[in-house]
Nucleic acid binder design. Structure first.
Length: 431
RNA sequence: CGGGGAGUAGCGCAGCCUGGUAGCGCACCUGGUUUGGGACCAGGGGGUCGAAGGUUCGAAUCCUUUCUCCCCGACCA
């Protein structure tokens, strides 16, 4: 992508209604534009990141055996009346009346719909287990939306639903998702901390929430330091669930089961939540299956959510400095930025185009800053948007046969011989 | 939902107290000079001052109503 063809409206000043750092940076980096309170348009750069996150979530879900489908955003009130949640959800549910007076709603979650889909097609234990998911926009009319996409009213969520014969099988499904969640967040360059959680209005008896560490997080976490250095290739959900982790109001220093030297305290942001809730919805929505004895029993269910759009903000909260965003490479909108400092210098332009063509041909996600503007603006804009690897081409160094390489993740700069650039970058990208 | 704050050019703000027909910085356009850290000079475009009503000869400014947005708290993925 050439910067001059892209749509990337960066801002020097922060709009006054942004408070937290990720919100400010997302606006300044031209990732989002607010449309109403808690509702945002995703501009091209923001959308690229959102898609990256969505892609990782999808891959890990598929790998864990979940099957993707897509349910609508607008639902009829019927199923919600059956489940009893039409009244329970209250004002947080956005209700709409269609032209013939039917009561509709913008889905805040999908337990009802998925249970209905399940029950109309599956009736035998032989078809279990099943785990279905979708990645779809939700709407919850929050009393107080805030913090940009971290707590929007409209938000993108991955939610899936497991169906099992009994509690024991359901726990297996639960653990598979538990493991998939840890892997998902680690792949995004985050440090996930799993906590035993209250089940809340979704109900049930087993639940974990997943927080990621960020200095600016809202909750204070107390946890076993072992949780900070998990090997994603080797996760044992049961072992992991036995590690100590608690939010501040659950943590009691006197009764803490682990030694002080193993206890870490950090701030966190919640990005995922999983529940096992047994037969709560299957009974109400008639999702019964026949077991081996031909007996009709309600199916055991779990639901699992990841806040995809919230993760964009959360990743920024965990990865930024005073100059801007520092994208982990796995979610970066571009892997590489080629910054031509002297757009109207023939040598600089030729050299940057040469690199650009090479990386485009090799399918490296690259953005070429070919804008005609001052050096300072280019460098600071590129710091702001946080592309992890940057090649900076200027007249001064090019004359001597060098360009600069900048690693935005640690801000280290080194000079590279012009002929070594492609190999150098290829090696960096392999890691 | 309780408490607080704010709506004036794309963004950030001043003007409001004390009424006289709107200004600054950035951004944008034109020309020129620049070019390794958000450049400089000159010229230029852009506003029914959130909306409605009222007071007044005259309202961004005073009064009333209303809408929107933000912050703190409670609540929640």
């Amino acid at each position: 992508m050439k910067y001059s063809n892209f749509f990337l409206p960066t801002l020097k000043d922060v709009p006054s209604d942004a408070e937290i750092i990720s919100h400010k940076l997302m606006i300044r980096a031209g990732m989002i534009k607010q449309s109403s309170s808690g509702i945002y348009s995703w501009l091209p750069l923001g959308l690229l990141v959102l898609k990256k996150i969505e892609h990782i979530v999808r891959e890990e879900q598929n790998r864990a055996g979940a099957i993707e489908l897509l349910m609508p955003t607008i639902q009829s009130s019927d199923l919600w009346i059956k489940s009893g949640r039409y009244d329970d959800y209250g004002k947080e549910m956005l209700r709409i009346t269609d032209r013939s007076g039917r009561e509709m709603l913008y889905g805040p979650t999908n337990e009802e719909l998925i249970t209905d889909i399940f029950q109309s097609h599956i009736s035998s234990y032989k078809d279990l287990p099943k785990n279905l998911y979708h990645i779809q926009w939700k709407f919850r009319d929050e009393v107080r939306p805030r913090f940009g996409v971290m707590r929007g009213r409209e938000f993108l969520m991955k939610d899936n639903y497991s169906f099992d014969l009994n509690e024991e099988e359901a726990k297996k499904s639960y653990d598979i998702m538990f493991k998939a969640y840890i892997k998902t967040f680690i792949r995004m360059g985050l440090t996930p901390i799993s906590l035993r959680a209250e089940t809340g209005p979704i109900g049930g008896n087993l639940s974990h929430e997943f927080q990621i560490l960020a200095k600016t997080g809202e909750s204070t976490l107390y946890y076993d330091k072992k949780l900070e250095s998990l090997n994603p290739e080797n996760i044992d959900p049961n072992e992991l669930q036995s590690f100590y982790a608690a939010v501040d109001d659950q943590h009691d220093e006197k009764n803490c089961p682990i030694q002080k030297k193993d206890l870490k305290i950090s701030k966190g942001i919640e990005v995922g939540h999983i529940f096992y809730f047994g037969t709560k919805y299957s009974e109400k929505l008639n999702a019964y299956i026949q077991d081996q004895d031909g007996k009709n029993i309600p199916v055991h269910m779990g639901s699992y959510g990841i806040g995809v759009s919230r993760l964009v903000g959360a990743i920024i909260e965990a990865n930024h400095d005073e100059k801007g965003i520092q994208w982990p490479t796995s979610v970066a909108p571009f892997k590489l930025a080629i910054i031509n400092l002297m757009s109207d210098d023939q040598d600089c332009a030729t050299k940057s185009m040469e690199y650009y063509d090479y990386f485009m041909k090799n399918e490296i996600e690259v953005i070429l800053d070919d804008r005609i503007c001052s050096v300072g603006k280019k460098l600071s804009d590129n710091e702001l948007i946080g592309i992890p690897f940057q090649i900076i081409i200027g007249k001064r160094d090019l004359k001597n046969g060098f360009v600069e390489f900048k690693n935005r993740l640690n801000n280290k700069v080194e000079k590279i011989k012009v002929d070594d650039v492609t190999n150098f970058i290829n090696n960096k990208l392999k890691i």
